[in-house]
């Protein structure tokens, strides 16, 4: 079937089977490989994108379900002039990544959080990252990056 949606502000169409996951559609049909597939079992959050403004796991939604929807991926997060967005820049500044595999999902999760709670507490940030797994950083620097991106002083309690 033909599926049409708006991805990063642009109308796109592509072929999908019923079983085609949104993650596969974005990567294979549209070539947007910034959305990563870590576990493909709904655990890791590397495939996190926004559908109609809501943070979802694109590996746990069919492409056909996004028909007509507004989808935002990591490719749509930079500023219009190509510079990094505040969240992306904060991840760089605070070393919120090492291997970088989880980073697209982390940035999308962070953006959804700051949309809902512009100045989250550390506990709110950690609670919100429940569905995003990072095996490198131990999360501390990711939490710091999100605090910085929200314009708050960076302070993370040692655990």
């Amino acid at each position: 079937m033909k599926v049409t949606m708006h991805v990063n502000g642009r109308q796109v169409s592509g072929e999908a089977e019923g079983r085609t996951l949104l993650s596969a559609f974005l990567r294979e049909e549209l070539g947007l490989t910034g959305t990563h597939i870590g576990c493909d079992t709904s655990q890791c959050g590397a495939c996190t994108v926004h559908v109609d403004g809501k943070q979802v796991k694109s590996c746990t939604m069919f492409a056909a379900e996004a028909e007509g929807a507004e989808v935002t991926t990591i490719e749509g997060m930079a500023n219009a002039d190509g510079s990094l967005s505040a969240i992306q820049q904060a991840f760089q500044d605070y070393h919120g990544l090492q291997c970088g595999f989880c980073t697209p999902g982390m940035v999308m999760a962070a953006a959804a959080l700051l949309e809902e709670i512009p100045q989250p507490t550390e506990a709110q940030i950690r609670h919100h990252l429940d569905g995003n797994i990072c095996r490198c950083t131990g999360y501390h620097n990711i939490v710091k990056a999100i605090q910085a991106a929200s314009g708050q002083p960076v302070a993370v309690a040692a655990e």
Binding site: S42, G45, T48, K54, Q55, V56, K57, T60, M61, A109, A112, L113, H128, D130, G131, N132
Partner: peptide, 9 residues
């Protein structure tokens, strides 16, 4: 329940 992405679906 689950995590934020699960709760949105």
């Amino acid at each position: 329940i689950g995590d934020p992405a699960v709760r949105n679906r």
